[in-house]
Design a binder for these strands. Structure first.
Lengths: 158, 158
DNA sequence: AAGATACCCTACCAATTCTGTCAAGATATC
DNA sequence: GATATCTTGACAGAATTGGTAGGGTATCTT
């Protein structure tokens, strides 16, 4: 269970924007350069974040993206939900069986009940944890790293 | 960000074992039948859980698997970590670039710092949330679902 | 008006990962 | 020794992911 790079990129861009806020919109290429990301790919992500209402954009020269809300009003849960997609809860989990086999269609009430229990727990916990992290928190964390040597020993998955 | 079916299957099997505990080992095929899972696939997962020390197994007729610890001593974080794998923290996140491009190698100190900040937050939160859910909790949740109609509206991702 | 800058949008591709199968072997119980 | 069960590894198809390509459109500057 790990953060997709997609979500990580998105978060990086947003943190960048949060740090730059107050200075007018920042262009996708500016962010991409500072964050060492592929411009074309980043644009896709920014676009999705804009459609979801997290960003506003201005076209034309001196245009770019800005946060649509204050940093403490944007949570990580929201970003992950937007970028990793909001697939149907049930269909996503349905396995892809090759041959007809009984498979793991949770046909039995008993099995279904357990799936639901696990699903509820996971969802509740994730939403709670990641919903508690805002862009502002991350900006703080970034600042606290200022002097520290970065030793690559950070982890994105459980 | 979602739970892999692998982890879900593993959890389902473990909950099943927890519910069945005290009645001797349960065979893989028994669990698979009750949980509507493919036997061969489930065996892989059970085996990994055994190697990790979460299960004990008995061979031969009337053999099977049992929990190596009490249900409240097994957390979801542990299971997910075992089944989804403990890949290197950095390599996993490293994107697969097709052409040489500067890509998203976090070469700049600034970009790296933000990645670290996000990574730390995610890891800490996930470990905290999923580490707080035990098999016993899930058994409780299952029981609480006993009367309820199951409407497939459960979610496994954020 | 021209052109540069930047966002907007839609396909598409290839590598990897994930889910699941198969087959052969080992080992304990009946 | 027959049978039930765990053990192990190799393998294959499908889905997802990360990334590219290329054309369009709005807006600012000159």
């Amino acid at each position: 269970m790990k953060l997709s790079t997609r979500s990580l990129y998105g978060m990086r861009a947003l943190v960048e924007l949060a740090l730059l806020s107050g200075r007018g919109p920042a262009s996708a290429s500016h962010i991409a350069t500072r964050q060492c990301l592929s411009i074309a790919y980043l644009e896709q992500l920014l676009h999705r974040l804009r459609k979801a209402g997290l960003l506003t954009s201005v076209r034309g020269p001196r245009g770019g993206y800005s946060l649509a809300r204050l940093p403490h009003q944007i949570t990580m849960a929201e970003v992950v939900r937007i970028l990793d997609g909001e697939q149907g809860p049930w269909e996503t989990i349905q396995p892809r069986l090759r041959k007809s086999g009984s498979g793991s269609l949770t046909s039995g009430r008993h099995a279904q009940q357990i799936s639901v229990a696990v699903g509820r727990c996971v969802h509740a916990r994730l939403a709670e944890s990641l919903g508690g992290v805002t862009l502002e928190d991350l900006c703080q964390e970034v600042k606290s790293l200022d002097g520290e040597p970065l030793d690559h020993r950070y982890v994105f998955h459980i």
